[in-house]
Write a protein that binds this DNA or RNA. Structure first.
Length: 565
RNA sequence: CGGUGAUUAGCGCAGCUUGGUAGCGCACUUGGUUUGGGUCCAAGGGGUCGCAAGUUCGAAUCUUGCAUCACCGACCA
């Protein structure tokens, strides 16, 4: 490729709208352009990278015996009604109508379509197990698209689905996929971790996420400092504190300050206080809305995922309005406390372990000290409803927790039969009976990987691509080619030779000053720069600069091809 | 969905307080100059100032509404 005939589209200045480094560099290096909120055009250089990621993913899927298909992005709404997700999915699902007024959705995922397909195509146990995958554009109407490609509304995803007669077979394929994912991220050259994950709205049993570690990541991951344990903070169990709860030593007394003021003025340790949140309980038909109180130790944070997984709590989690709060406690939410609340109370394990604690008194501007659970609040329902924090004992039983941020680039699930059941996807077994299939599903955010790779591999000059996904393997940068016939001949010959050898080479044949060319190629992140200049031609040498290490060395022109063996 | 802010040339921004011929830097075009790290000089092209309504002799500037984009928040101790 010659730059003079290519769409380089690099920018000197950083567009104001780009927040994270990967977004800035993707715009500056001419990989993508923004079209509308969460929608991006892939420019030639970006597309090259995207295709490389795609191909690695494809090769490893095929190696894991998955077969490629391509399903429509636009899907009929009745499929989604059949699975129940037309109601469940919410506004993230973009719904649209065709000219005949028939309802469709833009596919955020393809469980329905693939399950329908398999239900129609697969009839016998002899055809199982089956794994299929596709690499297709998805659309999710995110509340808040951000960080450029990282959380766009339209994105490229690899999604795979496996079908089995039973749990045992599913587990085998799940492990195979797990291994395939590790190979993919190894080949991509990324620093990643598989972590135990919540199964979320898709449902099912076991699940792992694959995270690329980066400070800008949107997820928090809990690691043990003494074992391989790693889990999404959403999922990581916070163990109950050791030992028995201490006996009460204080009587309740009332303080004429709201809890917040009390904490500030008397320098109270948050660990001796509790906070109380009112949320909606599961709706039952014909009954008035039920409110449930959640109680956490003051220094802890509510884990929404854990709470939503409790059967008593409405999903999605909804906080009580100020009106609902006053109706129940006759005070503002900042003065709530568990004593004397006329609703069901769910107490976090750590909060439940306290004695002589401080809390709101359910009267505006008043708090209690010296409160004790059994004595003052009666029987309580104890659950794990908080986020694990640094220093907590690891749920695996070994070591303590440290927390790092990660970008979720892959997620695998053992789905079970939720969709197969709903779409009546079964086969005849050996003894001639129909049996509903068990499914697994396996996603990789292909476009997000491009952004994640940049988050992890950049410096002040630009992107430092891992070799496997660099848009070009090598750039030829001639010094003052317009004036020197020798430089031109040498550069052209090199270009010819590299092309012949099937190496992805970009030849900077623009009439630009050296500084401009260096800056562009460093921004784009081509791993090797071949610098052709008068300076070294007398000795028939060429300068080779490694973008990753910054090393420069001289080598005879005739040896250049050895770099690519 | 709530809060905040922005919207003026392809990009980054000034001008708005105090209404009166629309500017700067980068990029682009042409000529010259320079040539191993974003040269320098000169000339030039490009904008219904987000949209709509209002106030006014006159609106980028004041008022109102709308749209789009971005950031923050959605944890209520």
């Amino acid at each position: 490729m010659r730059t003079s005939q290519y769409l380089l589209s690099t920018l000197k200045e950083t567009p104001a709208s780009a927040e994270v480094i990967s977004h800035q560099l993707m715009l500056r290096a001419g990989l993508v352009r923004n079209l509308a909120s969460g929608l991006y055009t892939w420019l030639p250089t970006g597309l090259k990278v995207l295709r490389k990621v795609e191909n690695i993913v494809r090769e490893e899927m095929e190696r894991a015996n998955a077969i490629e298909v391509l399903m429509p992005m636009v899907q009929p709404a009745d499929l989604w009604e059949e699975s129940g997700r037309w109601e469940d999915y919410g506004p993230e699902l973009l719904r649209l109508k065709d000219r005949h007024n028939r309802a469709f959705v833009l596919g955020p995922t393809h469980e329905e379509v693939i399950t329908k397909l398999v239900a129609n195509e697969i009839n016998s146990y002899k055809q199982l197990p089956l794994s299929v995958f596709q690499i297709q554009t998805k659309f999710r109407d995110e509340i808040r698209p951000r960080f450029g490609i990282m959380r766009g509304r339209e994105f490229l995803m690899k999604d795979a689905y496996s079908f089995h007669l039973g749990e045992e077979c599913l587990k085998k394929t799940y492990q195979k996929m797990f291994d395939a994912y590790c190979r993919i991220f190894d080949r991509l050259g990324l620093d990643y971790r598989p972590v135990i994950a919540d199964t979320g709205s898709i449902g099912g049993e076991a699940s792992h996420e694959f995270h690329v570690l980066a400070d800008s990541g949107e997820d928090e991951i809990a690691f043990s400092d003494n074992s391989d344990f790693a889990a999404n903070v959403e999922k990581a169990e916070a163990l109950a504190p050791q030992g028995e709860r201490a006996e009460p030593t204080q009587e309740i007394s009332t303080v004429e300050l709201k809890l917040e003021r009390l904490i500030k003025t008397s320098n109270l340790d948050l660990k001796t206080t509790v906070k109380t949140l009112l949320v909606l309980g599961t709706a039952t038909e014909g009954e008035p809305e039920k409110i449930i109180a959640l109680v956490l130790r003051g220094d802890h944070q509510l884990n929404e995922v854990k709470v939503e997984n409790l059967s008593a709590i409405a999903s999605p989690l909804t906080f009580a309005t100020d009106e609902q709060v006053s109706a129940i406690a006759n005070c503002h939410s900042t003065s709530l406390g568990p004593k004397g609340l006329a609703v069901d109370v769910i107490v976090d394990r750590s909060a439940a372990h306290l004695s002589d604690f401080v809390c709101g008194a359910n009267v505006n501007g008043q708090s209690y000290t010296g409160v004790n659970w059994q004595r003052d609040c009666g029987e309580i329902n104890i659950q794990d409803i908080r986020n694990i924090v640094t220093g907590d004992p690891s749920p695996c039983g070994s070591g303590n927790i440290i927390i790092k941020r990660g970008i979720e680039v892959g997620h695998i699930f053992q789905l079970g039969d939720k969709y197969a059941q709903a779409m009546n996807c079964g086969v005849l077994t050996e003894n001639g009976k129909n049996q509903i299939l068990t499914m697994g599903c396996y996603g990789i955010g292909v476009s997000r990987i491009v952004a994640a790779a940049i988050e992890q591999n950049h410096d002040k000059y630009g992107i430092k691509w891992p070799a496997a996904i660099a848009p070009f393997q090598v750039a030829i940068v001639p010094m003052n080619m317009a004036k020197s016939a020798r430089v031109k001949e040498t550069a052209e010959a090199l270009y010819e030779q590299l092309q012949q050898a099937g190496i992805e080479v970009i030849f900077d044949d623009r009439k630009e000053r050296p500084g401009v060319m260096f800056a562009d190629h460093e921004l784009i992140g081509t791993p090797i720069l071949l610098i052709v200049g008068e300076r070294n031609l007398d000795e028939q040498n060429i300068e080779v600069k490694n973008r990753i290490t910054g090393e420069k060395l001289l080598m005879p022109i005739s040896d250049v091809m050895s770099l690519f063996k």
